[in-house]
Computed example of a mutant assay.
Amino acid sequence: MSIAIRIDDILLAEAMAALGAEDGAATVATALRAAVASRGPSRAIPPRAVVGAAVPVAIDGDLLAEAGRAVGIESEGAVIEFALRQLIDRAARERALRELDGIGWHGDLDAIRLEGPGHAAP
């Protein structure tokens, strides 16, 4: 079963950029699958003023319903917005972690553990 729903084009573009995706429907499906997989507690979604035009996207209705149940949101549009925002946030966290790679502490944690408390690493 597939349903058609309108999505804020700016939010969809942000999610597609976060994934490096070119297909809006695939981006929404990825976001919904991630929402189902996380099954985290539902958070209230603040109202969002639609800045851009809405774009129609065909979505698997069963997947949308499962995602809504998983996160405790009834509105189809709110489920998609929640899932897209989660996807954008996750991509931003992963990007931030990659940017931290190579900076920071240099040492031998195993050696410090073997030496016990109160001993400084060489």
Rank of each mutant, 00 (worst) to 15 (best):
A18N: 14
E74C: 04
F82C: 04
D101F: 08
W105M: 11
P122S: 12
D62L: 06
D60L: 05
P47H: 14
L109E: 13
D62A: 14
A120I: 03
R48C: 06
L97S: 06
A54R: 11
R85E: 10
G24M: 07
L109F: 12
A58F: 09
V57A: 08
I88N: 03
L109T: 09
V36C: 13
A121M: 13
R69A: 04
D9R: 07
A120S: 15
A65H: 08
S42M: 14
Q86G: 14
A53E: 15
P56R: 06
D89T: 06
R48V: 12
T30A: 14
E81F: 03
L100R: 11
M16D: 06
V79N: 00
P117V: 15
V71P: 01
V55Q: 10
T27K: 10
L97V: 00
D8L: 03
I103Y: 15
P46K: 07
A54D: 12
L12R: 03
T30F: 10
A111C: 04
L63T: 01
G24D: 05
V51Q: 14
Q86C: 01
A96T: 02
R6K: 10
M1Y: 07
V50K: 12
A15T: 03
G104D: 10
V55M: 07
G77L: 01
A70H: 04
P122V: 06
A70E: 02
H106F: 15
V50M: 09
A15P: 02
I88K: 05
A29E: 15
I80D: 00
G52D: 12
E76I: 00
G24C: 08
L97M: 08
E99H: 08
D9C: 08
S42D: 05
I112N: 06
H119N: 12
A65K: 06
P122W: 15
R93P: 01
V28S: 04
D60W: 05
I80G: 01
E66H: 05
R39Y: 09
D23W: 03
A91W: 04
P117W: 15
P122G: 12
E22W: 13
L63H: 04
D9N: 11
R39E: 13
A15C: 08
G102N: 07
D60Q: 03
A83E: 02
A15M: 09
L84K: 08
I45C: 10
D101Y: 09
H119L: 13
I45P: 02
R48H: 11
V55E: 13
G68A: 02
R69P: 01
S38V: 01
A15G: 07
A78L: 03
V51D: 13
L12G: 04
A70N: 01
D62S: 08
V71L: 09
A53R: 13
I3D: 11
G61V: 00
E81M: 02
A49G: 11
L87Q: 07
P46D: 15
